[in-house]
Design a protein around this nucleic acid. Structure first.
Length: 534
RNA sequence: GAGCCGGUAGCUCAGCCGGUAGAGCAUUCGACUUUUAAUCGAAUGGUCGUGGGUUCGAGUCCCACCCGGCUCACCA
C-alpha cells in the first residue's frame, strides 16, 4: 500500500475507486498533465438501452473516483460506431422496405426511417445524447464517421497497413475456416455503391496508404485509400486502432467481449499503443436467468424502469456489484429504490461532517449516493417514507391516484407535501403506477353473498345522503359500523373483511371511514355499485 | 473446447484490512385501534457447498473437488 503515496487521498473501498487506483498505477509513468481519456462505445444500429446506461454510468463513476483520487483532468468520450454497416433491419422501426435497400451501407449513409434526421445513425446518435443528457452525464460525443472522414484516424490507418500482416497473424487463428478466407481488418467502402466491403485484400501498399481489392459481384478491381473515410476497420481491429489513435486510457465492456478485449489489446500493442485499463462487467439476466439482449427484447428497458421508479434508483442498481450477474426485472425496483434512499440519508449526514472529519469524508466517498449525485447531495434529495411502505400503502388504500396516497401520508405527517419533498412526490407517482400495473391485476374481488349484498346496498344508500357533506372520517366510520351491526354481522370483523374482499380485492385494509373520506363518497358508492353488479 | 460468476436463515441477499454470523421479507407473539395496519416492540430460524491447508483464530486467505448458472467459439 506504500505505493499509493502519489494519490491525494486513501482509496475508499468501493469498486470505482479500486478501478481508479488500477488506472492510476497503469498511468504512473506517463505525463501527468495529459487529460486521461475514458471511452464508452455505442452501436447506433438501434436505440440506446439499459446496458448503454449502465456502461456510461459506471464509466462516469470511475472517472469521478479517478479525479478525486489523483486530481488529474479526465474526459469521457461516448463513441458511436456510426460508420458500421447496416446488417439487419431492426423490426421496431418504420419503413422496413426502404431500409432493406440499404443493407451493407454505413449507418451514417442510411436515410432516417423516422424522417427527422440526416441519417439513421444521426437519429440514433441524437437519441443517445438526449438519453445521456436526461441523466446529466458529462461526456463528449464522438461520431466514427466524422473521425474517419476528417482524417483524424489517417496516421493510425497508415500504421495499420505497415503492420497489416502481423494483425492478420493475430486474428486469423481465432476465426473459422470460412471466415478466414474472406477476412480483412480493413474494410474499403465501395467507390460506386458506397457499401462496406468484406472482401480479402489483393495487395497492401503501406507507402501509398492504399489497398487493392476485387468486387466479387462485378469482378472489377479497385485501389482504395484507407485514409479520409474511404475505408473503415473491421470491428476488433477498429477498437484497437481507436485506442491507439486517441490514446484511450480506460474502457469497460461486458464479459461477452472478454476475447475481443484480449485480441484488440494485442493489436493495439502491435500498432505501438498501450491498451486501456478496464473492468469486465457481468451481464444482466432476465427473470428466467437468460442474458438480456436487444434482439430478444427480454428483461427491462430504461423507460420501463423509470415508469416505476425514480432515475436515481437505476443508478443504485447499476452501482451494486458490476462484476456479478444480476437479475434485471421489475421486482428488483423497490429494493434498489430503498437502498438508494437509505444511502442518501447517510450521505447527507456525512456531507456535513466531511469538511472537518476525514473519516466521514472517506465514508462519503464510499457511498453510492455520492456517485449518483456526482459528488454533491442535493438538499431536497431523499424521502421520509420508503418506497416499500408507499407500495404497501397504495395497495391497502387501493390508491388509484397520487392524491389518495398523499391524503394518507399527510395524516401521518402534516408537514410533508409535493413541494417540500420532491423525491417523495416522484415516489408517490410511481407507487401508484406500480400498484396499478402489478398489484391490482393480481387482486381478486369476491362476489358478495345475499346478506352482504343487502348490507352493501344499505351502505350505498346511506352514503348517498352524505355526498354533499363534509368528509368526516369518524362520522363515516360510525355509519359503516352501524350498518354492519344492523345486518347482524358477528363478529363484526366479518363485515369489514367483507368490505375489503368485495370492494378492495384483499383480505385486509385501512380503517374504512378514513378510506371513504379520502377516496371520496361518490367514488365509494361507485365502487359498491360496481361490486353489486358483478 | 476456452473463460466468467455464484453456492451464507424458509425466500432474496449483505458480510470491508481474517477477530463471537447480519438485514429485508416470511412465520409466531405482544402493544395500539369501534374491524384494520402504513406503526412500534420481541421471538423463532444458519454444520456459511465439500475436503484439505495457512493461522492463536477462517464465511473471509490458499489449494483441490462437487453442484448450479452464464458467456464466447457466426456478427458487432
Amino acid at each position: 500500500m506504500s505505493d499509493d503515496a502519489h494519490l491525494l487521498i486513501p482509496v475508499p473501498r468501493t469498486w470505482p475507486f479500486e478501478e481508479a487506483r488500477k488506472l492510476a498505477e497503469a498511468l504512473a509513468g506517463g505525463d501527468p498533465e495529459k487529460p486521461v481519456l475514458f471511452e464508452t462505445g455505442y452501436g447506433p444500429s438501434g436505440l440506446p438501452h439499459i446496458g448503454t446506461f449502465g456502461e456510461v454510468a459506471r464509466t462516469s463513476w470511475v472517472r469521478q473516483a479517478f479525479t478525486a483520487l489523483t486530481g488529474r483532468p479526465a474526459r469521457l468520450l461516448a463513441f458511436s460506431d456510426d460508420m458500421d454497416a447496416l446488417r439487419k433491419v431492426p423490426d421496431n422501426v418504420p419503413q422496413q422496405d426502404m431500409l432493406k435497400q440499404y443493407i451493407g451501407q454505413p449507418l451514417s449513409r442510411v436515410p432516417d426511417p423516422f424522417g427527422t434526421h440526416e441519417s439513421f445513425a444521426a437519429h440514433n446518435n441524437a437519441r443517445l445524447c438526449a438519453f445521456l443528457d436526461s441523466f446529466g452525464f458529462e461526456y463528449e460525443f464522438a461520431s466514427s464517421t466524422l473521425y474517419y472522414t476528417s482524417g483524424r484516424f489517417d496516421a493510425a490507418l497508415r500504421r495499420v497497413l505497415e503492420v497489416h500482416d502481423r494483425i492478420l497473424d493475430v486474428i486469423l487463428p481465432t476465426l473459422g475456416p470460412d471466415r478466414r478466407a474472406t477476412y480483412s481488418p480493413v474494410l474499403p467502402l465501395h467507390p460506386e455503391t458506397g457499401e462496406v466491403m468484406q472482401v480479402p485484400m489483393d495487395a497492401i501498399d503501406a507507402a501509398a496508404g492504399t489497398v487493392r481489392w476485387t468486387d466479387p459481384a462485378s469482378g472489377k478491381t479497385f485501389e482504395t485509400p484507407v485514409t479520409g473515410g474511404h475505408a473503415k476497420m473491421q470491428w476488433k481491429a477498429d477498437w484497437a486502432m481507436r485506442w491507439y489513435a486517441l490514446g484511450v486510457d480506460y474502457e469497460m465492456s461486458g464479459k461477452d467481449l472478454i476475447d475481443s478485449v484480449r485480441l484488440s489489446g494485442k493489436i493495439c500493442r502491435i500498432l505501438g499503443g498501450d491498451p486501456p485499463s478496464g473492468l469486465t462487467y457481468e451481464l444482466f439476466l432476465d427473470d428466467k436467468g437468460q442474458k438480456i439482449s436487444k434482439s430478444k427484447g427480454n428483461g427491462l428497458s430504461v423507460e420501463e424502469w423509470l415508469r416505476y421508479a425514480i432515475p436515481e434508483s437505476l443508478g443504485q442498481y447499476m452501482f451494486n456489484q458490476p462484476q456479478r450477474a444480476k437479475r434485471l426485472f421489475f421486482d428488483v425496483i423497490p429494493k434498489a429504490t430503498d437502498e438508494y434512499l437509505s444511502h442518501v440519508d447517510k450521505a447527507r449526514a456525512l456531507q456535513k461532517e466531511a469538511p472537518h472529519d476525514s473519516e466521514a469524508r472517506q465514508a462519503l466517498l464510499a457511498n453510492p449516493a455520492w456517485f449518483i449525485h456526482r459528488g454533491e447531495i442535493p438538499a431536497d434529495a431523499g424521502s421520509p417514507v420508503s418506497f416499500a411502505m408507499l407500495l404497501n400503502l397504495a395497495s391497502v388504500a387501493n390508491a388509484e391516484t397520487p392524491d389518495v396516497l398523499w391524503g394518507f401520508i399527510r395524516r401521518y405527517d402534516l408537514t410533508v407535501s409535493p413541494q417540500t419533498h420532491p423525491t417523495l412526490s416522484g415516489l408517490v407517482d410511481r407507487a401508484v403506477v406500480y400498484y396499478a400495473d402489478f398489484v391490482r391485476p393480481a387482486k381478486t374481488w369476491r362476489t358478495p353473498d345475499d346478506k352482504e349484498r343487502a348490507a352493501l346496498t344499505d351502505l350505498a344508500a346511506a352514503l348517498r345522503g352524505q355526498e354533499t357533506q363534509a368528509r368526516d372520517a369518524d362520522a363515516l366510520q360510525n355509519l359503516v359500523f352501524e350498518i354492519g351491526k344492523r345486518h347482524g354481522f358477528d363478529p363484526l370483523r366479518a363485515w369489514f373483511t367483507c368490505l375489503y374482499e368485495v370492494l378492495l380485492g384483499q383480505s385486509e385494509g385501512p380503517r374504512f371511514g378514513g378510506f371513504i373520506a379520502l377516496y371520496g363518497v361518490t367514488e365509494t358508492i361507485a365502487l359498491i355499485d360496481a361490486a353489486l353488479a358483478r
